[in-house]
């Protein structure tokens, strides 16, 4: 065996061979993730006969579509912001607030359950609670004389959907931010304190900047999570609320827009929105993480 020759020949052979190992994966994601997405993107710029056009994109500005995008974005931003804030508060309470250590395990497990308890069953849970005959609605009306409906609350509305989405948004935040909060060293707080910083100063100058990338990443994820949520919305509101996923669902089912390629454009719009959210995230993260290389 001549080692030198052996390795050289091996290197030549290894290059394609190395790829064989992940060929199934590459094939799978190409066929069932990349190509379908590309099909949508390309279709958004094609006319019925397959020629290039920008008409579909222009048509997004017509009819109920802009309003659908607007309310979808509003719900996604609201539920992501509130989810981040409340999830952060709960995680911080658990880790930094001096609560008994025994709470941690159950709360994290529960978060795992709740963050996956989305879709149709979640909608029913909220209908049974805040719907017209729901537990809380009835209780408030019969026991306290508060009529939610009269106050303008409706589960089939912006706020109703936002509150429902929070049921999976908050736990997701808790799950993602807990490791980040664990990563805050006690010594940082102590060092800041002994240097004369107050609690708020420590949070503003040290802890929040350190957590910022994680907070931001979670926000982007929660946003995409809410923006693409179809099942909860459909089960909760049927088709009474005009949001993008419901519109697209109806379009795929029965071409309600009367133009198949407008469906592509609608889906393309969804990708663009979540894409923008994630680009902003990646850009801000890179900026805020200079101290990590």
């Amino acid at each position: 065996m001549q080692p030198e020759q052996g390795t050289r020949r091996g290197a030549l052979r290894r290059l394609p061979l190395v790829w064989v190992g992940i060929a199934p994966f590459v094939l799978f994601v190409t066929l069932f993730l990349i190509l379908p997405t590309l099909k949508i993107v390309i279709g958004a710029f094609q006319a019925g006969d397959g020629s290039f056009t920008l008409q579909n994109i222009r048509d997004l500005a017509t009819g109920s579509i802009p309003a659908a995008f607007w309310i979808s974005i509003k719900i996604s931003v609201a539920s992501a912001l509130l989810g981040c804030a409340i999830g952060f508060a709960m995680a911080a309470a658990m880790i930094l607030g001096g609560l008994p250590a025994a709470i941690r395990g159950p709360l994290l497990t529960f978060s795992g359950v709740a963050s996956n308890f989305a879709g149709v069953p979640l909608a029913f849970a909220f209908l049974a609670t805040l719907g017209p005959l729901g537990l809380v609605t009835v209780f408030l009306r019969t026991q306290l004389g508060i009529d939610l409906r009269a106050l303008g609350f409706n589960i089939l509305s912006f706020w109703g959907l936002t509150i429902t989405y929070l049921f999976f948004q908050i736990p997701l935040m808790i799950l993602i931010i807990t490791p980040a909060l664990d990563g805050l060293k006690r010594e940082w707080r102590e060092a800041a304190s002994v240097l004369g910083a107050t609690g708020p100063q420590y949070w503003r100058m040290v802890a929040l900047p350190i957590l910022f990338p994680s907070l931001l990443g979670t926000f982007a994820l929660l946003f995409a999570n809410a923006f693409g949520a179809v099942a909860t919305a459909i089960a909760l509101t049927g088709s009474s609320l005009n949001i993008v996923p419901i519109l697209l669902f109806a379009q795929i089912r029965g071409d309600v827009l009367g133009n198949p390629n407008l469906g592509f454009a609608l889906a393309f719009g969804m990708i663009v929105i979540t894409g923008i959210a994630n680009t902003i995230y990646i850009w801000l993260r890179a900026r805020s993480e200079r101290w990590l290389k």
């Binding site: 102590e190 060092a191 002994v194 100058m205």
Partner: peptide, 27 residues
Amino acid sequence: PNQRNIGMVFQSYALFPNLTVADNIGF
């Protein structure tokens, strides 16, 4: 602690990772 006017150095350095050396010293 923040009212005692004490300086402290920790075993784990405890430098603030998000601040430059100068900003750490000036904290």
